[in-house]
Design a binder for these strands. Sequence first.
DNA 1: CATGAATGAGATTTCATTCAT
DNA 2: CATGAATGAAATCTCATTCAT
Lengths: 219, 219, 219, 219
Amino acid sequence: MTEATLPRWQRKKDARPSEILDAALSLFVEKGFRATKMEDIARAANVTKGTPYLYFQNKEEIFKAVIQVNLSSRFAELAEIERQHSGSAAELLQQLMFKWWDEVGCTELAGICKLVIAEATNFPELTQFYAAEVIQPSLTMVGRILQRGIANGEFRAVPIESATDALLAPLVLAMTWAHSFGKVVPEGAGYSYKNSRHHLAEALDLVLNGLCVPGKNNN
Amino acid sequence: MTEATLPRWQRKKDARPSEILDAALSLFVEKGFRATKMEDIARAANVTKGTPYLYFQNKEEIFKAVIQVNLSSRFAELAEIERQHSGSAAELLQQLMFKWWDEVGCTELAGICKLVIAEATNFPELTQFYAAEVIQPSLTMVGRILQRGIANGEFRAVPIESATDALLAPLVLAMTWAHSFGKVVPEGAGYSYKNSRHHLAEALDLVLNGLCVPGKNNN
Amino acid sequence: MTEATLPRWQRKKDARPSEILDAALSLFVEKGFRATKMEDIARAANVTKGTPYLYFQNKEEIFKAVIQVNLSSRFAELAEIERQHSGSAAELLQQLMFKWWDEVGCTELAGICKLVIAEATNFPELTQFYAAEVIQPSLTMVGRILQRGIANGEFRAVPIESATDALLAPLVLAMTWAHSFGKVVPEGAGYSYKNSRHHLAEALDLVLNGLCVPGKNNN
Amino acid sequence: MTEATLPRWQRKKDARPSEILDAALSLFVEKGFRATKMEDIARAANVTKGTPYLYFQNKEEIFKAVIQVNLSSRFAELAEIERQHSGSAAELLQQLMFKWWDEVGCTELAGICKLVIAEATNFPELTQFYAAEVIQPSLTMVGRILQRGIANGEFRAVPIESATDALLAPLVLAMTWAHSFGKVVPEGAGYSYKNSRHHLAEALDLVLNGLCVPGKNNN
DNA sequence: CATGAATGAGATTTCATTCAT
DNA sequence: CATGAATGAAATCTCATTCAT
């Protein structure tokens, strides 16, 4: 894949645009799309009010660019890990899940997930983009791994889609809630996200346990 | 009475509040809180701009009322079912989950969940209200049932919080996404919510399977 | 003067209208014309929102009626006192001034003065009425008394208008400020209206002293 | 540059605030605070609706600024005149009074006085500000001069507060009424403010005459 | 006569966007 | 390229007034 074929939003080499997008990301995640003022974005990027308009047509375009820049790139790497993996499917699922958690889930980037959910119906085009670039690859990859696990006798012959859902739901929820309830109800009404990584590991274990062929515990 | 003599307005003091809340629910779910204009709510409720203010102090109060009326009330009933149940814990979990799905999850009401997630940081007071009225009771109830299942030897001694999370996450996610991605990407990028109830049942089975003591299938 | 020739606003014998006007007076004096809501007037008069409109065309008409009812009547009585007075001009001025102070100046009615000043340019018609019914008679009467005092050697031959002004200004100011600054800065920035009556007496003495023929102190 | 190419707006950062305050002053004096619309102020200042908000937080702040800019500043100068004065107290009082009249009393600025009286109870904070910045200094200064006049045998030993009141009341009243009745009843019901300066001089003379020690005419 | 639910014009304020400098 | 003053559409909320009951 050459430089020339990289998508438009990755080609900007100037620092300005990405400073603006970084500022926008933080503010969008913190306040939501509507409540974030262009002037705040500009100020957070150390430029003045008019400058963002030199790089982006309007606030919507910034929103799109923020999501495009921050998420699309990560799937090639995950796919590479999947290709090179030689151990059990369960191990691979755990490895990928934790990698995603550490690089996205427990960072500001997780807020994008909340953002997209919140604004999905206001930005259909973007939502489709996100579905194609993030959701689709995730589901496909996990489905593929499950299939392999079933094929090699590691997992029971469960319905792929439902199992994928059961596996990913805790992760997605943890990411989403950390940026909604987590900000407001820190001790989460009896449900703590303080130790989310550990917590997530346990939920994953549980589901993997349900997946595994009885008597053949791969965990 | 001809069209020309139709009264400019009709007095319906008792009906108004719920008409307004119904209108608000649909619009909030569709567009989000900020993007929903008071005048739209009014028009959707067949009244004029000022009328909602006769019944609610402002838009936020309408938001709160929407949640109170539609969700808070349901938990007493769920608790009653729990109290009267005499079968297995797994059965109870399934029964409650499907009841919730049928009455909330697969209806417009599920959109409230998305709404709260989306607006959480903008309305901390409301988020706390939702956490106390909806999330807390759910988590407590599921936790209690799990505990009982472990106590009577039906389930393995898993960590309660993580298991609760694993059980509820698919439900919450299904509700949330139906009102974000579901509206925009109907065929869900390879992940269909078309048959959500069936789908949910399978995910639940899977997790319950992971919970159960090997050799003792209670489903 | 027969009943039939009484001005329109005094002919209403029902209690309702005057209850409404009393309520309106208090509220207008307290909050000003614009800030007083029709509903507040209604509530203060123990009727409902629509009732004032059965008696008055709109808020402006209530404002007019409030002023007409409360002030016009008092001048006949003052004129009668003037006619029957046989002592010195200075004594008469003092007597009238205190009578006005005790019946109007130190009561809620004084607030009308502030009201008219505040709304004068918004209600020219009313202002003209007030000028004709209240200001004009006052000035004429005081001028007449001064003239008499000069004629009988009690006062120096001062310009009538300026002397009238000097005599009445402290009274008017006391009335006005009691309903503006007096409400907000009770201790009046070094200038106390607590003992306004005493205070007023002294200011009047001072001006009368300036009026009197030297060597002939009538006070 | 033809009419057609006139810029939609002009940048005048430094000039704007005072243009806005000037426009606001005229409108406030003419219509009162509540009745003056922000859009009117903007239009009178040749800007659009939003521009005043670039310089002032809201209408109240404009009100405050109008008073600060136009009145607060003048007292230092008056105090300086007082300090440098070496003649009689009566002369000083006349000089100050006429200076104030010429610079404030007979100009649009006098309308501020009416304004504050009218809106006092609606803006307690502002009223306190005005009391501290305008009323208090005036009263103190006049009181000080009276005291000096009494000390050096020029005036009789009258009560300071009442004498201050008698001296200032005609001035304040002239300022106030010029912007209420004066606008509506130009010939003032037999009481003309046409020659206010002359008129005021006479009233002042009268009061000073009442103040002076008999046989010792300092005027 | 009286009520009070409903109307709808109107006012304040916000903020994405423009464009002269 | 960058600035930031200015624009003006839009949104919330108020309240005088109306009129079916």
